[in-house]
């Protein structure tokens, strides 16, 4: 049993003797100054724990989106080239199937295929990027792929729909009438104006992606924000849970802001509209 005096001291240290609004104001004040508090369990500062975990999650997210886009863009274009053609129908079916596989199932499946059956990639663990790039990628590939497949299916379908619409535009006929080759028309004329919805969906997808990252980090035991959050929940270490939720929320806002900026980069019309207003 904890002695009453020690309990009171502990409550004071943690600021639990203040009123609830008082605690909240104190928390906000500390957070804004970069002090996210200390872990209840080991006294490690929360800030440090988050700082260690963040790069892992960021790498995972970036890598997965790269994979998803690199695969989804050509497939989406191909599907749009002949709507309801064989390729379009097959890719529709595959996308539909992929979307019915939850991220955690997909993770387990990939572990089974590549780690358990064929021993191509490690099932769990992590090597920091700064330590060994090759080893880092080896550990990152399965988790990123797990995350990528879900996004990939969505991106491909969205790009396909937009691309089909764009290919019906007059300026595509103009480009054809200029005698430009099909590849040029697809990549130089049609792709960029077809990516508005893709960017929108990518923005909406961020929430899903973070959710997926939590699960993937759990499955592959990657020391990122998700695993940190989960292990803190299991350990009832609320200081860290609070901090990671805050980090995710801030990260979420930042990424959405970046997506908004991306619109301006893609569509000159919005750029100039803003400039003239």
């Amino acid at each position: 049993m904890i002695p009453a005096k020690g309990l009171a001291q502990c409550r004071h240290q943690l600021g639990l003797d203040q009123s609830l609004p008082g605690q909240y104001v104190q928390y906000l004040d500390n957070s804004l100054h970069g002090n996210l508090g200390t872990s209840y369990l080991n006294g490690q500062t929360v800030g440090k724990a988050v700082k260690q975990a963040l790069p892992v999650t960021v790498e995972l997210l970036v890598l997965s989106q790269l994979i998803a886009l690199v695969v989804a863009v050509p497939l989406g274009i191909l599907a749009a080239l002949r709507p309801d053609g064989v390729f379009d129908q097959v890719s529709t079916g595959v996308a539909f199937g992929l979307l019915a596989i939850p991220a955690f199932m997909l993770g387990v499946l990939l572990v089974y295929l590549f780690a358990v059956s064929f021993h191509v990639f490690p099932a769990t663990g992590w090597t920091p990027l700064t330590q060994d790039l090759g080893d880092n990628l080896k550990h990152a590939i399965l988790p990123s792929l797990t995350l990528a497949l879900g996004s990939l299916a969505v991106y491909m379908r969205v790009l396909r729909t937009d691309m089909i619409a764009t290919l019906r535009e007059d300026f595509i006929t103009t480009a054809r009438a200029k005698g430009m080759p099909t590849s040029h028309i697809l990549l130089r004329h049609a792709l960029r104006p077809s990516t508005f919805a893709l960017v929108t969906v990518a923005g909406i997808n961020i929430g899903t992606l973070i959710t997926g990252a939590f699960l993937v980090e759990f499955i592959f035991q990657l020391p990122g924000i998700g695993l940190l959050t989960l292990s803190s929940i299991y350990a009832r270490d609320y200081g860290i849970v609070q901090a990671t939720v805050l980090v995710v929320a801030v990260g979420f806002v930042v990424i959405n802001l970046l997506v908004d900026l991306l619109y301006a980069a893609i569509d000159p019309r919005t750029r100039h509209a803003r400039a003239t207003v």
Binding site: F171, T173, T174, A175, H189, R192, R269
Partner: peptide, 8 residues
Amino acid sequence: MTSLNPVM
């Protein structure tokens, strides 16, 4: 209005 590519 529509026969020129708006983003080129």
